[in-house]
């Protein structure tokens, strides 16, 4: 069964018909040819499909498109108006990737995570739940653990995010 929805994707308004079964990930990739978000597992277990949905990092594979009519989607392709987002530049500088397949999701997740930390959200490794967040290496690692990288580029990803966080 089809439904008509509109999305703002990387700043551009798009309207499309979707099957009610269509995930936001498939709507982006198959209907709108927006392939920056990747399909690594399709079950919320790898993070490759992460975008910023209405400003927060979000897994598009576990999201039905029909439930997000009117949403604003920002993918790694739309993070910067021109050139690269500082997080993306830091990924290049620290070689925070190899095959590149998890990378757009890592980048979006990092951008969303830095915002969460700025808002003072605690994490599993935050010792003092009521204190301020000190975004040290362990905090970055924990907060980024929803994004698997099978190439094992974690040290570079960590270095990139550490730099972007303090820039």
């Amino acid at each position: 069964m089809d439904a008509h929805i509109s999305l703002t994707v990387d700043g551009t308004e798009r309207s499309l018909d979707v099957d009610t079964r269509t995930t936001l990930l498939d709507a982006l990739r198959e209907r709108l040819a927006v392939t920056s978000p990747k399909k690594g597992c399709d079950h919320g277990q790898c993070g490759s499909c992460t975008v910023l949905l209405d400003g927060r990092r979000h897994l598009t594979c576990l999201t039905l498109a029909v439930a997000h009519d009117g949403a604003e989607v920002v993918t790694a392709a739309g993070l910067a108006d021109d050139g690269l987002h500082p997080v993306q530049q830091a990924f290049l500088d620290h070689d925070g990737y190899q095959c590149g397949y998890c990378t757009p999701g890592q980048v979006c997740s990092a951008v969303g995570m830095l915002d969460e930390a700025k808002q003072g959200h605690p994490s599993h490794v935050t010792d003092d739940l009521v204190g301020d967040v000190d975004l040290d290496d362990d905090e970055i690692r924990e907060r980024m653990s929803g994004n698997l990288c099978r190439c094992g580029a974690y040290p570079g990803i960590l270095a990139a995010i550490r730099e972007a966080a303090t820039a």
Binding site: K38, T75, A76, L92, Y97, T103
Partner: peptide, 18 residues
């Protein structure tokens, strides 16, 4: 720096079914 880095960090790199 990887010569295909820009494509990878933006997601512009096209994989097999993209």
């Amino acid at each position: 720096e990887r010569v295909d880095g820009h494509e990878k960090v933006t997601g512009a790199a096209a994989y097999a079914v993209e």
